[in-house]
């Protein structure tokens, strides 16, 4: 299978380990990725003018004939929203006024979790691929907002289960994580830090209370808010959280037998070592039993 890859700006900065693990996992799953040539920023949640934001996405979509895969939920949601809006002929004509290569026909956009899930479902025997099941590990499935909203896409925008299902397929156990859909407030973090901090600490506490060994993130902004920001939140609220936040691709990679380095696990802010140690210990036990 071949897909066009839209990295998004964060893949080249604070979300490097997401890109590293995305590329490694796709390679392992036999998914060929071709990076979109000269791609531009999707505008994220900061371009309030909808026509401009649609045109920014359209310029990326016209640069390939392949279905487009994004790993960032914000980029994914912008590209998908544009794809839907551009079915409107009038808007398409207006946007095309500014584009060098015109937007025509239908495009396809998918998130990396769909790529992973699709490849695992297609496999004759997923056990051949999941060579290192994450037995004994508990994962808090954190969806955030934009993967499923405003709806009509991957899964239910109120109570999705695609991530829990993936966690199970990989051999781990999803925890009952009540705040799994709660917005991380990342989009307002830069000017409104206080507002975001209150929500973030609640999400982290709830994930920890659910008994999770780690949280699974699907979006680099959610990840930034829960991982790199975690030491700052610990200081601010005077409590220890120490909860590793793994990207969905890092979690998948581990189960596919990829090494910590191939998945950029040392680039996470909160140490991912406890996860690796628990995994190694569970495997050791299994060997002893055998």
């Amino acid at each position: 299978m071949k897909l066009a890859y839209y990295p998004g700006c964060v893949a080249r900065s604070t979300g490097r380990e997401y890109e590293i693990s995305t590329l490694a996992v796709c390679r392992a799953l036999g998914v060929e990725l071709e990076e979109i040539d000269d791609w531009n920023c999707c505008g994220a949640t900061h371009v309030s003018n909808e026509i401009v934001s649609t045109a920014l996405a359209a310029r990326n979509l016209v640069r390939t004939e392949l279905p487009v895969m994004a790993s960032c939920s914000i980029c994914y949601s912008r590209l998908r929203a544009a794809m839907i809006r551009l079915k409107d002929r009038k808007l398409r004509e207006r946007v095309n006024e500014a584009l060098e290569k015109k937007y025509e026909g239908e495009k396809e956009v998918e998130h990396v979790i769909e790529t992973i899930t699709g490849a695992l479902n297609e496999a004759k025997d997923p056990e051949d691929i999941v060579v290192r099941p994450l037995a004994g590990l508990k994962a808090a499935p954190y969806y955030g907002c934009l993967l499923t909203r405003p709806g009509g896409g991957i899964d239910s925008p109120e109570n999705p289960s695609i991530l829990e299902n993936l966690i199970r397929t990989l051999g781990a156990e999803p925890t009952d994580f009540r705040l799994k859909m709660k917005c991380c407030c990342g989009p307002i973090f830069m000017p409104e830090e206080e507002a975001a901090a209150e929500t973030l600490i609640r999400i982290l506490r709830n994930a920890k209370e659910s008994g999770a060994d780690f949280v699974v993130a699907l979006c680099p902004l959610c990840h930034l808010m829960l991982d790199a920001n975690q030491p700052l939140l610990e200081k601010k609220f005077g409590e220890k959280i120490e909860l590793p936040i793994l990207y969905v691709t890092q979690m998948t990679g581990l189960a596919l037998g990829l090494g910590a380095e191939e998945l950029g696990l040392e680039m996470n802010s909160v140490s991912t070592r406890p996860v690796l140690e628990k995994l190694a210990a569970a495997e050791g036990e299994e060997e002893e039993v055998c």
Binding site: L146, P150, I188, P191, E192, A195
Partner: peptide, 22 residues
């Protein structure tokens, strides 16, 4: 207007299919 995180939950739930975030 500056505290909206663009999370779209309002838009998912509006019974009139309005997009409050918009």
């Amino acid at each position: 207007i500056w505290l909206c995180t663009s999370c779209l939950l309002c838009t998912v739930r509006c019974p009139r299919s309005i997009r409050p975030m918009a």
